[in-house]
Design a binder for these strands. Sequence first.
DNA 1: CAGGAAAAAATTTGATCATATTGTAAATGC
DNA 2: GCATTTACAATATGATCAAATTTTTTCCTG
Lengths: 227, 227
Amino acid sequence: MDLIKNKASSAKVETEKRPAHEQVYQTLKAQIMFGDLVPGQPVTIQGLTDSLGVGMTPVREAIRRLISDGALVFQGNRRVSVPLLSAGDVEQMIFARISIESELSSRAAANMNSADIDNLERIDQRLDRTIADGDVSGYLHLNHTFHETLYSYADAPILLDLTERLWLRFGPSLRVVCGRFGTQSLPDRHKDIITALRSKDAKMAAKATAQDIEQGMELMADALTDG
Amino acid sequence: MDLIKNKASSAKVETEKRPAHEQVYQTLKAQIMFGDLVPGQPVTIQGLTDSLGVGMTPVREAIRRLISDGALVFQGNRRVSVPLLSAGDVEQMIFARISIESELSSRAAANMNSADIDNLERIDQRLDRTIADGDVSGYLHLNHTFHETLYSYADAPILLDLTERLWLRFGPSLRVVCGRFGTQSLPDRHKDIITALRSKDAKMAAKATAQDIEQGMELMADALTDG
DNA sequence: CAGGAAAAAATTTGATCATATTGTAAATGC
DNA sequence: GCATTTACAATATGATCAAATTTTTTCCTG
């Protein structure tokens, strides 16, 4: 569990340099995105100061940031919790993700060279293995890495930021869906995306990305209306 | 002791109920959005504790939130400042705003009744007066109110949140542009939007909104490349 | 002797914590 | 059930420590 323990040997300069509030933010972000926290679960400041071993000020700052990200919600009465998504929420996120991420994919297609695409394909191969193995946690991490890597070539930091914010919102719910249905039924349009990138076909890359998003999010929407 | 605790006096409720960090956030947000703060201007924690008369913790929390919003930027060396936009930034915001706000406008068209549209039109009439008077500050406030009011009928909180975040980003720069060129050259496709709403034409509402956004943002893009 | 660059001290600002205060929810009594 | 009390968590402040910038001093060179 000691994720923050020093990975000392490699780069000793940067290890402990970041301020505590930044580290707390990154830690919580990962926990939310990859599902250690369940939708609806309350998050308390004191609980985090105890478990993370830092004072309350850094924890407070990290929580405010995450609330602004939409990764946590303020429940009115000083309570903070992981968001529960409504059907409408998911529908809006589908629209926003398709609008923005298709564009990112399209822009990336114009900028990526052959080696970049090879690199992306290697990530996708590792992703396939997690699906075959039913490794939910690995799937969530590598799926995120795949999209993040792809979009990073778009050279569009503001669109990237909007996307990151959306991923933080649906992270916990996606985790629940994967936990319930396993990894078998998960969509993977990544092969289509890679094919499009190789032929420098921005339109096709955008379309494949849109389909990948839609299939994944629809799965989530269905699961939410069931429960 | 607390005999006066009941909220009997209805009109006066909003005074000191909200926590300090929330008030600081709202204050700074308004200052950023409507331009008391100039792009590039440094923002210091201690300066704000002095000028706002609260401790550092609430100020810190508000600043973290605003950084997450993109309304302030963290300059590496612990320094925080109001963002300077690049041409690429503006271009990305044009894309994102058109994508999302056109959709909001389209959805609002389906939900607004005649009285709602009348209300919106009254806002636009007041807006016209600020343009005629060259009242930059009034223009910025009412233009925001117009869009915010319109979009509120879309019943899409997540898309609304994404939009708010974008407005916070370009607020300071828009203010600079208006200050330099006055209000005369500002676009106003609001009449077209209202016409579209009255005929329940969602497509046309979306198109007029897109044009309104594009014209305003292009103005900003031009001004930024000049300086 | 003057000018400038480098080094060192001082000031300003940020980061963190410990503590006091206040508000909210749960528990107890009637 | 409802009101009062109790307990716990959130809010907010001030103090303390660390980092960075700015100013001052000093020393070297022309």
